[in-house]
Write a protein that binds this DNA or RNA. Structure first.
Lengths: 209, 209
DNA sequence: CGCTCATGGATTGCATACAAATCCTTGCTA
DNA sequence: TAGCAAGGATTTGTATGCAATCCATGAGCG
């Protein structure tokens, strides 16, 4: 695996907490390479928004302000909504069946609370859907949003009902794609993400009456 | 200016066409530095989606498929639509007045077909609006989309009417922000971007009747 | 006692040297 | 003459050394 992937994994798995200093020599020793590839990896992750580097002062794991998390889901709802729409417009029956297969597997693992498998299948599903849309810029825009340390722990804060709802959303999205119904696909995807946001952040403040 | 900014400028200004090879030694000589900072810049621009690098085979300027341009505007409409919405929700009167000032200047320069100034003011306006929204992830998501070689030539393909419309859109967005009306702001922003798309790509295919 | 400034240690930024991989040419063979 | 293989040339990947910058500690002065 490449240095940048190794380093991204380290950060995403929480080995380095947000705000933690990322010394070049320390990382080089940890990863068993010299400083040069480490530096290049840091620059890439900087562009991905995962680390912040100040000139002559080194790199730190980016700390996404709490308020940003709301925006992340707003953005994902809009961007992945578009992805779902485009996927529904162009997907073949085989494509939709493959998505459906992933969704079914995800639901089974969710019932057994096998979180690692759920993580993986969820990533497969969303990436597969984006790939169906076919546009590289769309995938590009999303990658920066999904590579966020907080999102990796998403399922940890789901209760049983939320988990079941999330799994069912995947099934429904696959159905909408199979039906070739862009409006339906986008709507479910948006519901899916707003539901996840609610589970993560709790109920939104409503206007006092 | 930093190496990555220099290199980005070179690409964006068309000095290296899409698909063109980006040799490390050549860039190093052109920019007057060694290969090391060039390599780091290439990795950053790779993450930004501006260049494609294949392992052991070097970097090329990314060629965005023609179809991607449609998606770029779809995405911008959704993302900047959110930015406009958030800006309208939080902006002070001073913020809105500053936007209005930029928009007025932009309209004046547009009437004189001073394209360079229009480029700059347009960038100022959109960046200023995003900054008002306040979210770093939002700005992050947009930067990759706006740093697209094609978009730099946008105004070149505008006719007089499209130019006037674009300028008026900015004025109207500033008004919506000043009115604190998120729905209005988002709607105008979407119109603004779809209008630009139409000028760039021509009329969309409509269903044959 | 507190503030300023200098000096030392540590860390990043850059350049250069070497290793590995790729490509391009050239010569051989069928 | 077309195809292939081998070797050199070019290019990328990595390591290391040096210069520049930054931060902290402490001495000197008000």
């Amino acid at each position: 695996m490449s240095v940048v992937d190794d380093l991204r994994d380290l950060i995403l798995r929480g080995r380095y907490a947000p705000g933690a200093r990322l010394g070049e020599v320390e990382l080089a020793e940890t990863l068993g390479v010299s400083r040069t590839p480490v530096r290049e990896a840091l620059r890439r992750l900087q562009a991905e928004g995962l680390v912040e580097v100040v000139a002559n002062r080194g790199a730190r794991v980016a700390e996404h302000p709490a308020g940003d998390l709301e925006t992340v889901f707003e953005l994902r709802a809009r961007i992945e909504g578009l992805a779902a729409r485009q996927a529904a417009a162009v997907a073949t029956a085989e494509d939709a069946d493959r998505l459906h297969g992933i969704a079914v597997a995800l639901r089974e693992h969710a019932e057994r609370h096998d979180l690692d498998a759920v993580y993986r299948l969820n990533a497969d599903f969303h990436q597969g859907l984006v790939r169906l849309g076919g546009s590289a810029v769309l995938a590009q825009s999303l990658s920066a949003l999904i590579h966020s340390p907080v999102l990796l722990r998403t399922y940890g804060s789901f209760d049983a009902e939320a988990m079941r709802r999330s799994a069912d959303h995947h099934i429904e999205i696959a159905a909408a794609v199979r039906a070739g119904d862009p409006d339906w696909a986008e709507a479910v995807m948006r519901a899916h993400l707003f539901s996840a946001r609610a589970s993560l952040l709790g109920p939104r403040r409503r206007d006092d009456g």
